[in-house]
């Protein structure tokens, strides 16, 4: 709640770090975290989406393979794709949110090249013209 409550208008780094630690500890941590974050990233409220993307970014840096593998599934990547695609939520999503998603995906293609589904999803977005630069 501390990390992802949109009523918190400032980033709570202690809360975010605690979220990342907790998801590492729990057996079901990675799937639970990705489901929660996907839902919030799809929020029409820009701050809620940006906040959740910041938590996702931070956890990808500090968590290990279990979380990387869960984020690297199409089950989660599809939810990010929906946000940037005009066929789904893209038309009503702020540019800032869409840009951050594409930046994160690009960074993971470089930093986690073994997560091949991330690269595949990113290449698909490039091919469809969603990635403009």
């Amino acid at each position: 709640d501390k990390a992802t409550n949109p009523l918190n208008k400032d980033l709570d780094w202690d809360g975010i770090n605690a979220f990342c630690e907790q998801l590492n500890k729990e057996l079901e941590g990675p799937p639970l975290a990705t489901r929660l974050l996907a839902h919030k990233i799809q929020s029409p409220q820009e701050w809620e989406a940006i906040q959740a993307l910041t938590v996702l970014e931070s956890c990808m840096k500090s968590c290990g393979k279990r979380f990387h593998d869960e984020v690297g599934k199409f089950r989660f990547l599809n939810e990010l794709i929906k946000v940037v695609s005009p066929k789904y939520l893209g038309s009503r999503t702020p540019e800032k949110v869409k840009s951050k998603i594409l930046e994160l995906m690009y960074s993971w293609t470089l930093g986690l090249p073994h997560e091949v589904k991330i690269s595949e999803a990113y290449q698909m977005l490039k091919k469809q013209g969603i990635v403009k630069c």
Binding site: L27, E28, P31, L32, K73, F74, R75, L77, N78, I81, K82, S85, K87, Y88, K117, E120, A121, M124, L125, Q128, I130
Partner: peptide, 15 residues
Amino acid sequence: TVSFHDDSDEDLLNI
């Protein structure tokens, strides 16, 4: 509930 050893996944969404 999702199994700890769940390796299942969906197909890539085509847009």
